[in-house]
Design a protein around this nucleic acid. Structure first.
Length: 825
DNA sequence: GTACACACTTA
DNA sequence: CATGAGTGTGTACAT
């Protein structure tokens, strides 16, 4: 029996696998749920803990003797020495009912080393019902020394979602552990369409017979720390073992030749990135609370005014409103946030000519252009700013340091399927802070003594497209530092390069050039998104035919792009995935579907006299799949369609089949969507990879580290960080250098990077906008019917518009004299 | 309480 | 038929 063995004995016994307990597992059954009749909440504590113990043993008792609890430092040291000997350590941290690594308490460590049994190291368990720490445990200081010893001896640390664990360890024990392997990230990179949870991964790849259980419900409402370590170990320690098994499986899978790029992506990009993200989340970003409140008040006033005016405009229609209210179709007063009610107000009560779909979205309301709809748009804008940003951000600040610690997920949200490899951000989503409403970004401020440094890749995606298709003309454009869109416009519209630029060579504005250049820009974006000619025509504001001609000319001038996209799509059809410039894969299984799924049926030959409850009608409707007929219709389809795909013919076939009672499920939409995604997935995936590489490079840049530089937010093609104010200029330069250098050696096209340095995010943009408006006010603008006004009047107007800024600040900005680094708002 | 549609924000 | 994200609201349905 394992229970009587000492830790040393354990280390010498052969590797224990779950095979030994498989039989038990089958007996226990596949799932466990606590009976709903048991009222956990009202159970006295002692009874509840006993109940929990019993339930846990019922489900996980098979692990008793497999997992072991370490109660003293001698045993822990032995275990760590063993880790040093074999060079690996799998680690999972347990916290006290908190998923916030910033403020949580560390409760214990789950460890696993091959050829030993998984162990649980209790650190902060308490006597039930109290905060009194149990004595027979490892102290935080002991745990810290033990882990540090492992780190100093270059032990390779393995995790499942290591970002969480290394943050917990940093915030409780005071240092960051290294990451050798993360099975969650590996799972997501290997197949982004599969769920990456530890249990499901283990079931899918290691042991399909494993049962599922959800005993977390048992613990709701009571601190985990009150659970006996022996009981808790059963529940938690097996995770470290599972993680190890999964890692071995993933390493095997990735050791094959055709997976070497995926392995490289993990080792050089994703694993190092998770460390960067851990620190970024721990650091957080500062919010200017006073400024945020001022903005909030401004928008609230604006929203209330708009709302009141809207209600006033509805007053003459009170009779009609009443009718709909009596029918229960609208509330009293009408709820403008409800699209259902709004449709009635707009199209039935106010009798505004309704578009076919009776939509109430922004485009529709804008095109309606009535006093009511224009005011409604204003109301909605304010409402959005308040409810999504100004009202909620202050509440998201951590009690620990008053900063906002958003969650950055380097592979997208776990709940959704992982897609292209881009970052996502939640609670709050710092990637959707308004950019058009520029003052909103000024809520974010550098920490005291720091300045914000920002850098964005200029045309990151088109440059990567150029690298992917190796177009000589486009490569030349970039390497000669010429404008991409002007080059393209000049090629397809047969004009001189300078005729396609926003400004002439001498700097004077060129409105025609601006228009033609923006057409080329729309074209490139459309191609990168996989847009159809119809939609592209509406965006470029040309007819469909004209758009087709432009596209034709485009592909004639840049045949490499067409060749590349076609090759990429064929690759996807053959392999079921596309690859980015490093080796990140985006699986698009739909692209391998047959155009149609065909299913033919037959009616069973049943004598209804045998069945009391079956009627003749039931029988006619009752069918069973007919394999032979299905085969026949599949052949018919191939014969009918011939070699070339034809939409009309397909429709004709569908009708014919349907008339014969054959189901034809059209996969056309799925296939075309997957095809559309091919090009975009490689470009967007490449961009995501490049940005991550840049983050890693910046993180590891010794010079930036010495300046106190820390990353704050990744916004896809843009990185935001802060640095101690005395190093502002130098850090700005280094940031751009690192971002550009990150593309090498894999990317053949030079990157370009624009940077800025401010105390408040976007204050440079706001300052420029104010200066521009000021100039228009005092000079006038005949095109926009703006009469020139005096300086005082202009300043007064701008102060009203920017009421969240002080008058002094507005004046400084008007004169372009605002100190972006030290100036106060 | 959960799931979806809709509307809006962003790169 | 445009790519990729998250948040907040209202509504319908289940519990």
């Amino acid at each position: 029996m394992y229970t009587k063995a000492s830790i040393l004995d354990d280390i010498e016994i052969p590797e224990i696998t779950r095979d030994t307990i498989k039989e038990q597992l089958r007996k226990i059954g596949k799932s466990h749920n606590v009976s709903k009749k048991v009222n956990l909440e009202q159970m006295p504590l002692e009874e509840r803990l006993r109940f929990i113990t019993n339930e846990v043993y019922k489900v996980l008792g098979r692990y008793k003797g497999f997992v072991k609890v370490i109660y003293n430092i001698e045993e822990l040291n032995k275990y760590i020495d063993k880790a040093i000997e074999v060079n690996y350590l799998t680690l999972d941290t347990e916290t006290n009912n908190s998923l916030d690594p910033l403020t949580c308490k560390i409760m214990g460590l789950c460890l696993y080393i091959p050829n030993t049994r998984p162990v649980y190291v209790p650190i902060n368990h308490c006597k039930p019902g109290t905060d009194e720490r149990l004595e027979n445990q490892i102290t935080e200081a002991e745990a810290r020394e033990a882990l540090k010893k492992a780190v100093n001896n270059n032990v390779k640390f393995i995790y499942h979602n290591g970002k969480f664990d290394i943050r917990v360890v940093n915030n409780t024990l005071g240092f960051y552990l290294p990451i050798y392997w993360d099975t969650m990230l590996a799972a997501q990179v290997i197949n982004e369409n599969e769920r990456a949870g530890l249990k499901i991964q283990f079931k899918n790849h290691i042991d399909p017979t494993i049962g599922s259980y959800s005993i977390e419900k048992l613990f709701t409402g009571i601190p985990y720390a009150w659970i006996d370590p022996e009981v808790f170990a059963l529940y938690s320690a097996i995770d470290a073992y599972d993680t190890w098994k999964l890692m071995k499986h993933q390493e095997d899978l990735l050791s094959s030749d055709n997976m070497s790029n995926v392995l490289k992506l993990l080792r050089e990009v994703e694993f190092p990135t998770s460390l960067v993200v851990a620190k970024m989340e721990d650091d957080g970003i500062s919010l200017d609370e006073e400024f945020t409140e001022k903005l909030n008040n401004k928008y609230k006033t604006g929203m209330e005014n708009a709302y009141n005016k809207l209600m006033d405009m509805l007053k003459p229609y009170s009779d009609r409103l009443k009718n709909f209210q009596l029918e229960g179709k609208i509330e009293d007063p009408v709820n403008l946030n409800s699209p259902d009610q709004l449709k009635i107000v707009l199209y039935d009560i106010l009798n505004i000519p309704a578009p076919e779909n009776r939509s109430t979205d922004k485009d529709t309301l804008t095109s309606l252009n009535t006093d009511f709809t224009n005011l409604l748009l204003e109301y909605r804008h304010f409402y959005k700013m308040i409810t999504s940003f100004t009202d909620v951000l202050p509440g998201l600040r951590s009690e620990k340091d008053g900063k906002i610690h958003a969650n950055f997920n380097q592979m997208g949200e776990e709940e959704h399927n992982v897609k292209t490899g881009r970052f996502s951000s939640t609670k709050p989503n710092l990637q959707q802070i308004p950019a058009k409403e520029k003052v909103m970004r000024m809520m974010f401020v550098a920490s005291p003594g720091y300045v914000i440094i920002g850098g964005d890749y200029s045309q990151q995606e088109p440059r990567l497209l150029t690298h992917l298709c190796k177009d000589p003309k486009l490569i030349e454009t970039y390497n000669n530092n010429k404008d991409l869109y002007a080059t393209i416009a000049s090629a397809i519209f047969k004009k001189d390069y300078w005729e396609c630029m926003e400004h002439w060579e001498d700097g004077t504005p060129n409105p025609d050039g601006k228009a033609i250049r923006s057409k080329a820009k729309g074209l490139v974006l459309g191609i990168m998104y996989g847009m159809g000619a119809k939609l592209m025509s509406s965006i470029l504001k040309v007819s469909v035919n004209e758009c087709l001609e432009i596209l034709d000319e485009f592909y004639k001038m840049f045949p490499t792009i067409k060749r590349y996209t076609e090759h990429n799509e064929e690759f996807a059809k053959e392999h079921g995935y596309v690859e980015d410039y490093i080796g990140r894969r985006r699986h698009l299984p739909d692209i391998q579907l047959e155009q149609v799924d065909i299913k033919a049926y037959k009616h069973p030959e049943v004598n209804i006299d045998y069945f009391d409850d079956i009627t003749q009608t039931d029988l006619i409707n009752f069918t069973i799949p007919d394999e032979k007929a299905t085969e026949y219709w599949k052949n018919e389809y191939k014969k009918f369609m011939g070699d070339r795909y034809n939409y009309n013919k397909k429709a004709e076939f569908k009708e014919k089949a349907k008339a014969n009672g054959v189901d034809v499920f059209d996969n056309g939409a799925f296939i075309s969507r997957a095809t559309t995604q091919c090009t975009n997935a490689t470009i967007q995936g490449s961009a995501a990879t490049l940005t991550k590489k840049a983050m890693v490079k910046i993180f590891n840049d010794k010079r930036l580290q010495d300046m106190g530089f820390r990353l704050l937010i990744p916004v896809h093609d843009e990185l935001l960080g802060e640095v101690r104010v005395e190093f502002a200029e130098e850090a700005e330069k280094l940031l751009a250098e690192d971002m550009i250098a990150a593309a090498k050696p894999e990317c053949s096209v030079n990157m370009k990077c624009d940077t800025y340095c401010v105390k408040h995010w976007y204050s440079d943009e706001v300052s420029n906008a104010i200066a521009d408006t000021y100039k228009q006010y005092i000079n006038g603008n005949p095109k926009k019917n703006i009469e020139p006004i005096s300086r005082d009047e202009a300043i007064e107007k701008l102060c009203a518009k920017y009421s969240e800024l002080s008058k002094e600040t507005v004046i400084l900005m008007c004169d372009n004299k605002f100190d972006l680094i030290n100036g106060t708002l």
